[in-house]
Amino acid sequence: MNINIIIQQVINFLQLGSIYALCALSFTMVYGVARLVNFAHGSIFGVSMYVLFFASTFLFERIKSPWFVYVIVLIIASVVTSLIALLLESAAYKPLKNAPKIAVVVSSVGAGMAIQYLILNLAGSKALRMPALIPNLRIELAGIPVPLYKIMVIVIAILTMVILNVIIKGTRLGVAMRAVSQDRIAAGFMGIDTGRVVSASFVFGAVIASVAASLYGTAYSIFAYDVGEGIIWWSFIAAVLGGIGSISGAVLGGYIIGAISIIAPILLPVSSYKDIVAFAVLIIVLLVKPTGLMGKKDIEKI
């Protein structure tokens, strides 16, 4: 294999890994704070894709500055998905605060299914092509052509992670989120409005999912109503692999899943065996370290 292909593959890996990492982050944010595996999250990602598609198709005909359009559609998608996430929280999750934990999971499964098929019914089952959200220029690195948009995807993803990290480490809201995720009851006693913090985590999840969707659309462009299912499953697996609820774990897990997705098809005879490899890695990790790579071990108090 020549150096050219290797560099291409490394960039492909970084691109896919970054998208998985972002999605895993959005998943883990909600889980860490709200203690809920949000099975509807994939559908929120799907909604985001469609909002981006329709908004950008509409705006590109009218506005000539692509970066401006990108920012605008991203904001629109974030607002729409945040509203949906908040609606879900108040309609499907909050009423189940005192119900068995499993009830919330089932409820989120129902919500996810409803939204996904709502998309299907409203937008049709036909695959769509996302307009180029990020302008594509080809640049050459040491004589090797590298599509700029791939680099931009990686840069925007990493930038988002850095911003998120600053928010969580440095702002009042971030501190409150960390407090709630460690001990919700104690955080409440310290005067933190835990309900609002949980809602905020849903908004964060939705916004990060929207950024991830814009990058996914840029990178792979073709999508259909069930786009959220696939990508979010893999990021869920990435989050669990890294240790669900752990921010650094989600990023690590995202890049591991990205690496498997790129490397496995090269080495294996059938490309869909990559799913099996990823799941096998996940199962082995969980059997050795039941709380994931970066997850903290819970010692049960007796």
Partner: peptide, 21 residues
Amino acid sequence: DTWRWVVGGILLIFVMVFLPK
């Protein structure tokens, strides 16, 4: 047709909210 999954999903939420067991 495909709307049944929308209805089914919403139904599932309703069942869980009103009859969590």
